[in-house]
C-alpha cells in the first residue's frame, strides 16, 4: 500500500531523513518510533504530500505522491501533530467541510460524517463550537477528521497526545479496529502505545531506520542472554559463588539491598542450575524472576549514542 524508497530530506545542510526504505502492506498497522527530532514528522509530511523530499519516492496504492498528488491525497487521512481545526466552526459542520474538500460525493457526505462522529465518539459534542472543546475532544475531532472520507491509508502523528488514560485506550482500540480495512501509520514516542496497537515497529533515529520488525522479533533479536533478578536474605560470598555456576555471564548488585541482577546464557539448563545453586548456598532466596526486555531497552539501545549505551546495558 505504501512504498517508500530512498527517501531523503535535507533542510539546508541538515539531513532530516536519509535514505529511508520501507513498505507497508494493506491493512497493516505500523508504529513509527523515534526520539524527538528523529524525522518522524518529516517522513509523515512527505507521505501525505505536504512536503516534497529532496530525493527518493513515495508510492501510495501505486500512485506516486509527486506525480499524482490528487489521487494520493484522496486516499489519505492525515492527523498532523496539531489537529487542523477551525475554532469558529461546529464539530459537525467542520467534519462536513472536510468531507467536502476531500472530494467525497455529495450523497456520501452525511453518512461519512455520521460514521466519523460515531467512531471517534463525538456524539455529545457534535453541535458544539470547536473552540470551546477540551484538548481531548479536539484531538478526537482531529482523528474524526482523518477518518471522515474513509481513506485507505491513515497517517496519524502522535494521535493520543493530550488525552486522558481512558481516552487513550479508546483511541488505541479505535486504531486497532481500523486495521484490516485501513492501512495505518502512526508515530509516537510513547512506547507502550506501539506494543498495544502496532503489528510492526519501525524505529527511526537521526533520520535513518534503526530497526524494523515486530515487537517479538525485535526483542528476540536484541537479546542473546537472559537476565534474572535475585533477592536473598544473607549476602556472604554470594557473588563469588554464583560466578562459578556454568552459564552465568555476569552478576551485579541490583537496585534494592541484597539484590542482584544475574545475566545468563540463553538456555533452560542454566536457569535450573542457577536456581538450584542459590537454594543450596543457604543464602535464603527471597525472590527470583526473569527481567523482560522492554521496548524501552530496545529503543534506548537503538537510539542512544555509544557513550550513553554503556550506561544502558541490556
Amino acid at each position: 500500500m505504501i512504498e517508500i524508497s530512498n527517501l531523503t530530506k535535507r533542510y539546508g545542510s541538515i539531513n532530516a531523513i536519509h535514505n529511508l526504505n520501507f513498505s507497508v502492506k494493506k491493512g497493516e498497522i505500523i508504529g513509527f518510533l523515534g526520539p524527538n527530532g528523529a524525522g518522524k514528522t518529516t517522513t509523515m509530511k512527505i507521505i501525505t504530500g505536504f512536503m516534497a523530499p529532496t530525493s527518493g519516492s513515495v508510492k501510495i496504492a501505486g500512485f506516486d505522491v509527486f506525480e499524482n498528488p490528487i489521487e494520493v491525497k484522496k486516499r489519505i487521512g492525515y492527523l498532523p501533530e496539531t489537529p487542523p481545526l477551525y475554532s469558529d466552526m461546529l464539530v459537525k459542520d467542520y467534519l462536513r467541510y472536510v468531507a467536502q474538500i476531500k472530494g467525497l460525493p455529495s450523497s456520501q457526505i452525511e453518512p461519512g460524517v455520521a460514521r466519523a462522529i460515531e467512531k471517534a465518539n463525538l456524539g455529545q459534542v457534535q453541535k458544539r463550537l470547536i473552540g470551546n472543546l477540551s484538548k481531548g475532544f479536539r484531538q478526537r475531532v482531529g482523528v474524526a477528521q482523518a477518518l471522515v472520507h474513509n481513506p485507505d491509508v491513515l497517517i496519524l502523528d502522535e494521535p493520543t497526545v493530550g488525552l486522558d488514560p481512558k481516552q487513550v485506550i479508546e483511541i488505541r482500540n479505535l486504531i486497532k479496529e481500523l486495521s484490516g480495512d485501513h492501512t495505518v501509520v502512526l508515530s509516537t514516542h510513547v512506547l507502550p502505545e506501539v506494543t498495544a496497537t502496532c503489528q510492526r515497529i519501525i524505529i527511526i533515529n537521526k533520520g535513518e531506520i534503526a530497526a524494523e520488525d515486530t515487537f517479538e522479533g525485535l526483542s528476540k533479536r536484541m537479546t542473546s542472554t537472559r537476565r534474572f533478578y535475585v533477592k536473598i536474605r544473607r549476602t556472604g560470598d554470594f557473588e563469588a559463588q554464583v560466578k562459578k555456576i556454568v552459564g552465568v555471564k555476569g552478576i551485579r548488585p541490583g537496585t534494592a539491598g541484597n539484590s542482584y541482577e544475574v545475566e545468563l546464557d540463553k538456555n533452560d539448563d542454566s536457569n535450573e542450575m542457577l536456581a538450584e545453586a542459590i537454594v543450596k548456598s543457604g543464602a535464603g532466596l527471597m525472590e527470583f524472576r526473569s527481567i523482560d526486555v522492554s521496548l524501552e531497552d530496545i529503543f534506548l539501545k537503538l537510539t542512544t549514542t555509544d557513550v550513553a549505551q554503556q550506561g544502558a546495558t541490556l
Binding site: 505536504f50 492525515y78 498532523p80 487542523p84 474538500i101
Partner: peptide, 14 residues
C-alpha cells in the same frame, strides 16, 4: 497560524 493550512494542503486540492 492555526495549522489548518495542513488540512488544505493534504486534501485533494490544487
Amino acid at each position: 497560524k492555526n495549522r489548518t493550512l495542513d488540512l488544505l494542503m493534504t486534501s485533494p486540492l490544487t
